[in-house]
Design a protein around this nucleic acid. Sequence first.
DNA 1: CAGTCGTGGAC
DNA 2: TGTCCAAGACT
Length: 355
Amino acid sequence: MEPAKLTPKSLSAFQQALLDYYDKCRRSLPWRDENDPYRILVSEVMLQQTRVETVREYYRRWLKQFPDLQSLAAADSHEVLKAWEGLGYYRRARRLHETARVIVEQGNGTVPRTLDGLRELPGIGEYTAGAMASIAFGEAVPAVDGNVRRVLSRIFDVSDPRPSWLRGTAAGLIERDRPGDWNQALMELGATVCVPRRPECDVCPVSTWCLAHQAGTESDRPTKSKRSCPKRIQLALAVLYDDQQVFLIRRFWDGLLGGMWAFPEVEVSGMSDAETGARAAALSRGIGVVGVGQPLPTCKHRFTHIEATYHPFAFRSAVSPVEDGAVWVLATAPTSFALPTAQKKVLASFVEHIL
DNA sequence: CAGTCGTGGAC
DNA sequence: TGTCCAAGACT
């Protein structure tokens, strides 16, 4: 087909081409062909900044554990966090839990049906509200995620589209009969064909109308922002143990890994090895440490904006009564305690070297 | 508004 | 190896 420009006159052909592609080629996903607002909600929150393949299994287990809004609203915070363990961005779990409680307690269990109503809920931003409103309730509103941003940036050959332009443009393209499918079709195209690197324009159903493809600029659209390099920090960490038990504390709800269980730690960036060991020992004050700390191999862990190097030390101790927010658990099976990936690494190292 | 907030996979 | 990125939200 000859190159064409996307105009009000050609819009319906563009819509038809993309929806045909979606109907024919869409991936089979557990949350597709689903009209339960709660299930749509869970999938959308899990998918925030997280790959489809990662979400699949979490989604399945989550619905088994929390089959509806009521069961989630009634759940314990730590139980919720444990179900989210390993997914990352743990504040999402807390906000999803809050949202469930708000809907059950204030909304009588009825999920808001409009974008504006959904937008009020914690953890539901412009994208998620648009996705929910269009997919679950058929409201003709845009849902601009990273995929849609890339697709529109290429179709209109805009290097750095502003959020307001994206919303307005996406709103003007919506196929009014199938808003939910339309938004998902745009995302599906971005996820499978109009991908960041080496887009497959030769099989793209809408390349005819793509200005970037016509100009040969698709690889440069949208412009990739240079992100700041992660901060490097050193952390001393204390593994207090007695027989097979280790000591964990619950992190504060605010901040990194909020609410997760972890070994006591302290930042020691720039300090000497001796000072690092001393700071690790200081972490165990008051817990009844018996001997000196045994250093474990350091391990690196990369967060989004932090490159952390952990310096773990194992201290033989004695199980003693602990206050709220601390616990002794079996090192080989800390079940029911949500542990961050980095802490699991340290725990595995401890089990291997000390136990 | 630029920074905060995880993790695993692709290349 | 490092680098980028993935159905963002919130401050």
